[in-house]
């Protein structure tokens, strides 16, 4: 009973705030409506007993949206994104595309024969999901993750070596 009510609550919040993204006329509201939608998705992952994945989804998405709001407003054509604006562009093609994708996904969800559960729920579903997705490639993926992160930092260091916030000729201490 309680999980069902919670699922519908999160589902309605997720879809409702996703719709709101395109109905509001402010960059900030659109961004944070999207963040709310992602938080609801993360919360519904908690209902699947995927505590780690759910909380990490909320963590990453809120952080991402907070940074995205800064960039969206920075790149707006009107002054600082402060003016009201429409979030809809290229309406006809977007409508066709999104309608097609929705129809395909909905048809998939309804027509696919869902498998019966085999075995029981594992003790740690997060671990089981990780094993199923990554399997024996876990070590490789973790190595690649570190390399990617190092690349990002190195690229930033090279790009921003002489930028607005460099230390200047005096060599200011950190």
């Amino acid at each position: 009973m309680v999980p069902t009510v919670l699922f519908w609550l999160f589902a309605v919040v997720a879809v409702g705030s996703a719709v709101a993204v395109f109905r509001v006329d402010s960059m900030a509201r659109a961004t944070y409506a999207l963040a709310l939608s992602f938080v609801a998705v993360g919360a519904s992952l908690l209902l699947l007993n995927l505590a780690y994945l759910g909380v990490v989804t909320i963590l990453m998405m809120v952080m991402e949206m907070a940074v995205m709001a800064v960039f969206m407003i920075m790149f707006m054509m009107n002054p600082a994104g402060l003016m009201p604006m429409s979030m809809l562009h290229n309406q006809r093609a977007a409508l066709v595309l999104s309608g097609g994708v929705f129809a395909a996904l909905a048809a998939g969800a309804l027509l696919v024969e869902w498998p019966e559960r085999r075995g029981t729920v594992p003790d740690d579903p997060t671990r089981a999901a990780g094993d199923a997705v990554m399997g024996s490639k876990m070590l490789v993926m973790m190595g690649i993750g570190a390399v990617l992160f190092t690349t990002v930092v190195a690229a930033l260091v090279l790009a921003a070596a002489r930028s607005r916030y460099d230390r200047g000729p005096a060599g200011e201490r950190p």
């Binding site: 963040a35 909320i58 963590l59 809120v62 952080m63 907070a66 940074v67």
Partner: peptide, 8 residues
Amino acid sequence: AMDVSLWA
């Protein structure tokens, strides 16, 4: 996750 939501 909670301290990150302080960003927002």
